[in-house]
């Protein structure tokens, strides 16, 4: 984080990427440097990449919430197409360009395979409780 702050202090000068209609600063490795680091080691597995999504999309991408769509059970080609659209920064997004920009084609495909295999969760009935206890109870029938 120290480094992040340092870089953010300099972003006025070093920020090169101006995303269309996006109001963002970039920092740390450039995408070229990132790709170089990435190429030096074997690709992380689809599960390793995909499990990073769970804090927003739920365990194994199964959460069916309003803001973040479920990824579990998503058609492979649809997933790939959509991630590449985000990565290309074709239009403004809430965070998905920021997230997708670092992935290689192979990584996107590995994640697509990983999520296509997962069991989707159904939309929980709308009277679910905000607290986890409510959630747990409501999901217990699944």
């Amino acid at each position: 984080m120290k480094k992040l702050l340092l870089i953010s202090a300099m972003t006025g000068l070093t920020c090169l990427l101006q995303a269309p209609a996006s109001f963002a600063l970039t920092g740390g490795l450039t995408l070229e440097q990132e790709a170089k680091v990435r190429s030096e080691y074997p690709m992380p597995s689809g599960a390793m990449l995909g499990d990073n999504c769970s804090a927003c999309h739920g365990t194994k991408g199964a959460e069916f919430n309003e803001a973040m769509p479920p990824l579990a059970g998503m058609d492979k080609q649809k997933f790939i197409k959509q991630m590449k659209i985000y990565r290309a920064n074709k239009f403004p997004s809430i965070v998905m360009y920021d997230v997708a920009r670092v992935f290689s084609d192979e990584e996107i495909e590995a994640m697509a395979d990983f999520f296509a295999k997962q069991k989707p969760e159904e939309w929980t009935l709308p009277n679910w409780n905000a607290s986890i206890k409510g959630n747990a109870k409501e999901n217990s029938h699944e």
Partner: peptide, 27 residues
């Protein structure tokens, strides 16, 4: 929002970071 990625850069090195972070916006 901030979206940060940490890439493995060797067992005895820190991870390498890249990020995108919100700037002030009137939108």
């Amino acid at each position: 929002t901030v979206a940060e990625t940490f890439r493995y850069a060797g067992n005895h090195h820190p991870y390498e970071e890249s990020y995108v972070m919100s700037d002030p916006t009137d939108n």
